[in-house]
């Protein structure tokens, strides 16, 4: 799979978050997205995951057949997508059946994350770090070429962070892509870095596509008198 993003712009509640983001990823490549809080790291991941509509710009994928972008990716963020009332195994079995292209058994995936004992425990009984590891085990139960990781090391101890770095290296070695929004480029030291800076206020970069809210901004002041 290959992914290219051109001149992406994002706006939330009328506020410009970022403009003019471009990057391209080839098989085995990873991208570490950095930037201060509120710079739009999560917004970029949400756009890639298809949850947020970009304000301008294009996202292209290649070499994935007929699949659409959301069908090619795993997203792990601070909302872990786990149901507290179900056991870790049930959560993973559900994800496996829902997402398709099944790989590891839930029990094996949990064991890989050091959570073999938690297979039959309701997620409600697990700590924040353990829940995050269950969510990461989802990466292993189905194959998806692109991993979108939002602060993947949050709540993880040092050993688990090393394990995550190992998993990411394996995924990339198998031709997978990773986009990670992170403060700490653990395991992605060789990855390209995309630093999102706040857009310069007042200086609208001329965008190749018109920006929807420009209509509200650019109306002549005399018209309003």
């Amino acid at each position: 799979m290959r992914l290219s993003v051109e001149e992406l712009a994002c706006r939330r509640s009328g506020r410009r978050v970022f403009t003019g983001l471009s990057f391209a990823l080839r098989p085995g490549e990873a991208l570490a997205v950095t930037g201060r809080n509120g710079a739009g790291k999560s917004s970029l991941l949400a756009i890639l995951a298809g949850r947020l509509r970009p304000d301008a710009g294009q996202i292209r994928v290649a070499d994935v057949g007929e699949a659409s972008l959301p069908e090619c990716l795993h997203a792990v963020g601070h909302r872990d997508g786990l149901k507290a009332a179900l056991t870790a195994g049930e959560n993973l079995a559900f994800a496996r059946a829902l997402l398709g292209d099944a790989r590891m058994e839930p029990r094996a995936a949990l064991a890989r994350l050091g959570l073999g004992h938690a297979h039959d425990l309701p997620v409600a009984y697990l700590s924040a770090g353990q829940r995050r590891r269950v969510a990461l085990a989802r990466l292993l139960v189905c194959h998806r070429p692109l991993w979108l990781l939002d602060e993947p090391t949050a709540a993880l101890d040092v050993a688990s962070q090393a394990l995550l770095a190992e998993l990411m290296a394996e995924h990339r070695a198998a031709g997978g892509l990773i986009v990670a929004a992170t403060h700490q480029a653990l395991g992605l030291e060789d990855a390209a870095t995309l630093a999102i800076a706040a857009p310069e206020p007042g200086l609208d970069r001329p965008s190749p596509t018109p920006d929807r809210d420009a209509d509200w901004r650019d109306a002549d002041v005399e018209d309003w008198a």
Binding site: A56, G57, Q58, R60, A62, T209, P210
Partner: peptide, 13 residues
Amino acid sequence: APPATKPVMSSSP
């Protein structure tokens, strides 16, 4: 870019 490339989403004028 190969011809297989397809736009996933775009907002064109």
